[in-house]
Every structure is written in C-alpha cells, then in structure tokens.
C-alpha cells in the first residue's frame, strides 16, 4: 500500500487513479477534514450583532462544524471557511443577536 500524498484543495480537481490511492478508502492523513472547506456550501451567512451578544457560548457549543471559536471567555468571529450557513447558531441564540443573511449580498 502506498503512502498517500494528500492533494491540496486545488489539486482535488485532478483525481487520482485506482493504483495511487490508499486501499479500503482509508485516509492516511490526520485532520484531513480541515481541507474540506465546507464554507463554500453556504447560502446564508450568520451576522452577529456584537452589541447584543452576552458571550453565553450557546452558538459555539451547537455549531456542527466548530466554526465559531471561543477563547479566554470570549466568542470570536465565525470562521467562514467552514461555516455552512446552517443557521443553528441563530436558532439557539437566547438573545437573538444572530441573523442569517443571504450570502449573495456579500459576494458582489
């Protein structure tokens, strides 16, 4: 079985032949999920009203992609590389300070 060279995001367009991939579909690299930038799936973007946020971390805990960081008792900005725009954060926010806005608005 060959050691796998994990392709970069751009290289994934070029797909490998059956002789060059690890057997059994295993992934021979740690944390490879990081490469899958699920942010590209996003149709709605969470926009946080910082003035209302109470730092309760409900959005942090419920985010299925761990895309909202929390350090030293403070919530950080949403990591848009991985945020799929699912809206769970907006739904669980007890003070309703997160609004899901159409992604197209930001991509002009």
């Amino acid at each position: 079985m060959k050691a796998e060279k994990f392709p970069t995001e751009k290289q994934t367009v070029k797909k490998q032949g059956w002789k060059d991939i690890p057997e059994g579909g295993i992934i021979t690299r740690a944390a490879s999920a990081k490469m899958n930038k699920t942010g590209s799936w996003r149709a709605f973007r969470p926009v946080i009203d910082e003035s209302k946020c109470i730092n309760c971390a409900m959005c942090v805990l419920n985010c299925p992609d761990n895309a909202i960081p929390f350090r030293d008792g403070k919530r950080g900005p949403v990591n848009l590389d991985y945020c799929k725009g699912c809206g769970i954060c907006a739904s669980v926010c007890p003070v309703k300070c997160i609004k899901m806005e159409e992604e197209t608005k930001f991509r002009k």
């Binding site: 797909k15 059956w18 991939i21 057997e23 059994g24 579909g25 295993i26 992934i27 740690a30 490879s32």
Partner: peptide, 24 residues
C-alpha cells in the same frame, strides 16, 4: 501515522476503491 477509516466515497472515488479489491 494517524488514519481515518470508513469515509464516504461517492461518484469520485468509490469505483477506484472497488477496482482495487478486484486487483487484490
């Protein structure tokens, strides 16, 4: 040498993985 197993393979890689089984 950490690995992940049982990952999803759709139209992109599943066929190649099966071809490997035939090879074996």
């Amino acid at each position: 040498e950490p690995i992940s197993v049982g990952a999803i393979e759709l139209q992109d890689y599943f066929f190649e993985t099966k071809r490997q089984q035939q090879d074996a």
